[in-house]
Simulated assay, not measured.
Amino acid sequence: MTTASYRIRPAGPDDAAFLADVTLTATRAQGRLPADFDEADWRGGFEEWSLESIDDPATDLNVIELDGRPVGRLRISRTPGSVELNGIQLHPDAQNRGIGTAIITELQSEAATRGVPLELHVERDNPNARRLYDRLGFTKTGEDGAEDVMQWTQLWNAAVAKRYDTPGTGMFAPEVLGPTVDRLAELADGGRALEFAIGTGRVAVPLSERGVPVSGIELSNAMIAELRTKVDETAIPVVVGDMSIVRAPGEFSLVYLVFNTISNLLTQEQQVECFRNAARHLSPGGRFVIELWVPELRRLPPGTPATVGVAEPGYILLDTYDVLNQHVVSHHFHFGEGTQAELGRTPHRYIWPAELDLMAQLAGFTLESRHADWTGSPFTADSPSHISVYRLSTT
Rank of each mutant, 00 (worst) to 15 (best):
T3F: 08
T3P: 08
T3L: 09
A4T: 07
S5N: 13
I8K: 05
I8Q: 04
A11M: 06
P13L: 07
D14W: 09
A17R: 13
D21Q: 08
L24W: 06
A26Y: 02
T27S: 12
R28C: 08
A29M: 04
G31S: 05
L33W: 01
L33G: 04
F37V: 11
E39D: 13
E39T: 14
D41Y: 10
W42L: 08
G44P: 04
G45I: 04
D55A: 15
D56Y: 06
L61N: 00
N62Y: 08
E65L: 10
D67K: 10
G68I: 09
S77Q: 12
P80N: 06
E84W: 09
I88W: 02
D93T: 10
A94H: 10
I99F: 02
I104R: 00
L107M: 06
Q108T: 02
G115M: 04
E119M: 13
H121N: 12
V122N: 09
D125N: 15
D125H: 03
N126R: 15
N126I: 00
P127N: 11
N128G: 10
R130S: 04
Y133G: 00
L136N: 05
G142P: 01
D144E: 06
E147N: 14
L155K: 11
L155Y: 08
A158F: 04
A159Q: 13
V160R: 09
T166N: 15
P174T: 07
P174W: 10
G178K: 10
T180P: 00
D182E: 14
A185H: 03
R192N: 08
I198V: 07
P206R: 08
P206K: 02
S208T: 12
G211V: 03
G211D: 11
V212I: 14
P213T: 12
I217Y: 01
N221H: 13
A225T: 15
E226Q: 15
T234G: 11
V238W: 00
V238T: 06
V240T: 14
M243Q: 06
M243S: 03
S244C: 14
V246I: 02
A248C: 05
G250K: 10
E251W: 07
N260L: 00
T261I: 02
N264C: 11
L266Y: 01
Q270M: 06
V272Y: 03
V272N: 05
E273W: 00
F275E: 02
N277W: 02
H281C: 01
S283W: 01
G286E: 01
F288A: 03
V289M: 12
E291L: 03
W293A: 07
W293D: 10
R298N: 12
R299W: 12
G303T: 13
G303P: 01
T304K: 13
T304I: 15
T304R: 14
A306S: 12
G309D: 11
L317G: 07
T320S: 14
V328H: 04
H332K: 12
F333G: 04
G338N: 12
E342Y: 08
E342P: 07
E342K: 12
R345Q: 15
P347K: 08
H348V: 02
A354L: 11
D357G: 01
L358M: 09
L358S: 05
L362Q: 15
L362N: 10
T366A: 01
E368M: 03
S369K: 07
S369L: 08
A372I: 05
S377Q: 08
A381H: 04
A381Q: 08
P384D: 15
S385R: 07
I387H: 00
S388M: 03
Y390E: 04
R391F: 03
R391Q: 13
L392A: 01
T394F: 09
T394R: 14
